[in-house]
Simulated assay, not measured.
Amino acid sequence: MKNVQFAEQLTYQRKLKGLSQEQLAEKTKVTVRTIQRIEKGSVSPHLRTVKLLAAALDIEVDDLMQLNDPREESIETKWLLLMHVSPFVGLVLPFLNILCPLFVWVHKREDSPVYDSHGRAVINFQITMTLLYVLAFAALLTIQGFGFLFFIAVLPFNAAIMLVNIFAVIRHRKCYYPAFPFLGINHR
């Protein structure tokens, strides 16, 4: 698990600086293959390698090596839950299903690649669902019989997907939303 967290942080920081694996290898004198294996999470880097990577990325070693502080994990879980639960407000007030997680994502995306990837997934899904609501409403008005069923099915589908992902975040810190990548693909 620690290799995976380091791999995610290294990949995120490298992409944040706009570097390819090859460019990072040139700056650190660490082989491209080693960087690839570290970013896959298949190896644990030596402390010397970590220091070289941090120096090349112009960040602190602590930014790459995150210690598992239970308080920080608890805070991260709370932010992730807020990001995943906030779209439920959109069931009462239109477009808040997009605006609420968008606000949280904009506020937290720079803090961690986890916030960035989860935020993108939630917002992409909510935009997709909003477009689906519009199609369902058009079907309700134009297609007799099927239009009504389609319109009625969209809301429970949206709620079910959101609930499944909330539980996945609580248990595994993972999420999966079937959606079009309006905000681009996740960095993970």
Rank of each mutant, 00 (worst) to 15 (best):
S86N: 02
T31E: 06
M129L: 02
A25M: 06
L96P: 11
V134M: 14
Q36S: 13
V43S: 10
V104E: 03
I38P: 04
K78R: 11
S42V: 05
T128P: 05
T34R: 13
V89S: 12
H107S: 11
Y115C: 02
V61Q: 05
L80M: 13
A136I: 01
S117K: 07
C100E: 14
S44I: 13
Q36L: 13
L57S: 11
N124M: 00
N124V: 02
A139T: 02
F137Q: 10
L96S: 09
D69T: 08
L53E: 01
L96T: 15
T77C: 10
N97D: 07
V92H: 06
L24S: 00
P113V: 00
L131R: 08
L67F: 14
S42G: 09
E73N: 14
M129H: 00
Q23T: 05
D62H: 10
I98W: 04
W105S: 05
F88Q: 02
T130S: 15
W79K: 13
A136D: 02
S74T: 06
Q21I: 13
T130P: 06
V114L: 14
A138V: 15
Y133L: 10
L64N: 00
I59S: 07
E72Y: 06
K29D: 15
Q21P: 01
A121I: 01
T130D: 14
G90L: 04
V104H: 04
H118W: 00
A55N: 10
A54E: 00
D63L: 06
E26Y: 12
E60I: 02
L24E: 00
M83K: 01
I127E: 03
R109Q: 05
L64E: 01
